[in-house]
Amino acid sequence: MLPEMTSPPAASSPAPDDAEVIAASLSDSECFAAIFDRHVEVIHHYIARRVGTDAADDIVAETFLAAFRRRSVYDVSRSDARPWLYGIATTLVARHRRSEVRYLRALSRTGVDPLPESLADGVVNRLITHDQKRRLAGALATLGQGDRDALLLVVWGELTYEETARALDIPLGTVRSRLNRARRKLRAQLGRNDPTKETHDG
């Protein structure tokens, strides 16, 4: 299920928010490690879902390096750095577009996810059927890169439309139209009768 798309209630604890940490890191660069510690898991998970854990290990390191180098241009009016980090990660994932699409096509064709180390054995997801997975993967593979980025930031990154617009540095209206187009394709694919007919005889 999709979690609520609202931020967790602002804690009344004295912990500085991301913007404060990033601002402090301009004079004391080691503060920036806190940004890593707070977000490395979710950013890695998002990347790994797209291109596999092996590639994700590297991309997540590059993401935080790039963020660190660009921290002076961070908009400190944004207390949550996640959209910014997701945006950087998405740009880096784009270099692996070919593998991403290849894995999705293979999943769609064979029903087996070739994403390196993507499946934790024994943790079988029963909320969607095998068949739905194949259709979803097939639909994702046909999306344009920009549409897929927007869709996966919203659904897997759990960003709001506004945050997605910021992450991708595109207007809010563009996010909406990309999402509409992507959802239409997903629906079309999911609604189709028996997608296995094309690749299997029976």
Partner: peptide
Amino acid sequence: LHMLAELRRDTPPI
């Protein structure tokens, strides 16, 4: 969108 949210949700953590 809810279905998509389930796809590869079981990707292991870093």
